[in-house]
Design a protein around this nucleic acid. Sequence first.
DNA 1: CATTAGCACTCGCGCGTTAAGAGTGCTAAC
DNA 2: GTTAGCACTCTTAACGCGCGAGTGCTAATG
Lengths: 343, 343
Amino acid sequence: MLTERQLLILQVIIDDFIETAHPVGSRAISKKNNVPYSAATIRNEMADLEDLGYLEKTHSSSGRIPSEKGYRYYVDHLIAPISLKNDVKIIKNIIQDGFFELEQVVQMSAEVLSELTNYTSIILGPELLETKLKQIQIITLSDHTAVAILVTNTGHVEHRSFSVPAEINPSDLEKMVNILNDRLFGVPIIRLPEMFKTEIASLMKQYMNDFEKSYDYLQAVFFSENPVKLYVGGKSNILMQPEFNDVEKIRSFYSMMEKEDEIASLLKSSDNGIKVTIGHENEIDAIKDFSLITASYQLGEGQLGTIALLGPTRMEYRKVISLLKGLSNEMTDALYLWYKSYE
Amino acid sequence: MLTERQLLILQVIIDDFIETAHPVGSRAISKKNNVPYSAATIRNEMADLEDLGYLEKTHSSSGRIPSEKGYRYYVDHLIAPISLKNDVKIIKNIIQDGFFELEQVVQMSAEVLSELTNYTSIILGPELLETKLKQIQIITLSDHTAVAILVTNTGHVEHRSFSVPAEINPSDLEKMVNILNDRLFGVPIIRLPEMFKTEIASLMKQYMNDFEKSYDYLQAVFFSENPVKLYVGGKSNILMQPEFNDVEKIRSFYSMMEKEDEIASLLKSSDNGIKVTIGHENEIDAIKDFSLITASYQLGEGQLGTIALLGPTRMEYRKVISLLKGLSNEMTDALYLWYKSYE
DNA sequence: CATTAGCACTCGCGCGTTAAGAGTGCTAAC
DNA sequence: GTTAGCACTCTTAACGCGCGAGTGCTAATG
């Protein structure tokens, strides 16, 4: 177990390193006015902390920097919550300023988050598990083209143009839409593909000529899986960080960010609450020098989305954790009201 | 006027520099097997070309690199068209593979373009001058929320959620929509805002109670200016270029790319055909070390969009120009068919 | 006995020097 | 007009050196 003094020193070192990005030496620590020990004492403690794995040296006679284990301990035990009145106010203003589109608020949140932190923010849109189908429409544009529009009870609109094969005649199309609206109204959109296969298909066979050909079309138009969307803010903020003075690192960062599905899968696994993964704790090689902090937010009554911040392991954990908590609360609150307003 | 030999040497130097990014020396040139002169002769010619402003030295005893004037001459007089059968085939495959959404083909084109060149591609969506309103719909979601949907004859869909003030009753809303559809069907969407102000407003005053309040809503929902959209591909490709070994340059590049409106205005001015602006010929300071090549494409019968490539002044002009010509043709062809299919 | 002052020692960093290499410009010969 | 030769210039990488920051250890101190 660490002594009080060791905790103090560990904390001071990490705080200082987070701020300056330079290895911190014993003399600098002893000068801080909340540290009443001499440099020599601190050197001894630092040696111990290094043996225990909380600190590292960059070379044999350098100051110390936190190890990943050090950061881990810091995050788990040494962080006092911080008040971010101003930042939370900013968030509140932006989020609650009467919005009507889900995408909009999520994108804004991502941007504000990266703005306030100078790290890269990633938000995973909520899975729209419980939004329900409000209406399906097909609008014919010419003899052989049409656009299909699908509206959910939350005002989410999806649309897709398609060409109408000559074999399908307009009245059939209309019939189909009627059937679909009749049967699928109020069904959670997540269940649409399944419903379509089981209930609708057989029904439509009865009413329509040439059913087979239409089937594939409809399926493709309305019921393809829609991948979860990723909102990213401040991709170039990471360039501000001094650890990114190396072009090779920048390159690998950007190529990593292009793999949206990998990133999405990283975020998805996160359960409720705040989760911090530091350096090698991350499963994906490409972010083994990064820290990832995730928090979840709720849409209505149960559908989760994830907010995350990606930055160097030398991250302002204290600020970032508080901020993420704040944002996730604000988002949950705002989205609750929003969601309810559609009931 | 330049002599034959000077032209040859200028060309060889630029070709070589474009390929290697290293200053090229007299000995290297004399070794090429289409150059039958000794290094000394070439040195003399190079000195003359430098006096004329076509070449530069990086330091007093270095090889030569092209000046901007050199590139300009190269682009205007020394580029032989190149055959890009393979690349054009790739483009064809991607573009013509039956698409139905405009955005889709434009985005794909941007991506393919940057993929094939390793530069950053920027495509300005066509101004939808002539697409016409097909249908307006308002779908109410709850007592006080609704989503408005606007469909054009080309299958383009815009939507916007809004809250319905208590003062407006549903039947009024319906009436409005009827009026709008009646009066605005077939009107080019570019003219909608104007039409709304002049014709519709007065008409609606007669039919509706409480017109004033609704007016602003409708205006905001349907008739706000929609900015021209920018499609960007391969933002991180630029990192591959050796001139980007400097973090400061990368930073300034990315901050430049964030100013979408400036970039859009740069592209807009381009008239028909291919246009190459090299280094300081660009009006915006931020891209004074870049070259920008733009080509235009047509949607249907007259609406122009712009395709552009942004790269270092040391660009593969020959390839890029041919490619851009090819792509602009393919896009125009494909979009012509697409556009016609909606008539 | 924990703490601290003192000191030798270790590295990294910046700097000037040096040598190699690439390339030029000029002159003189072909 | 063309080219070979050569002195000269400048970049780059390598090397050595001294400085400063920082450490680890020892011995003195309260």
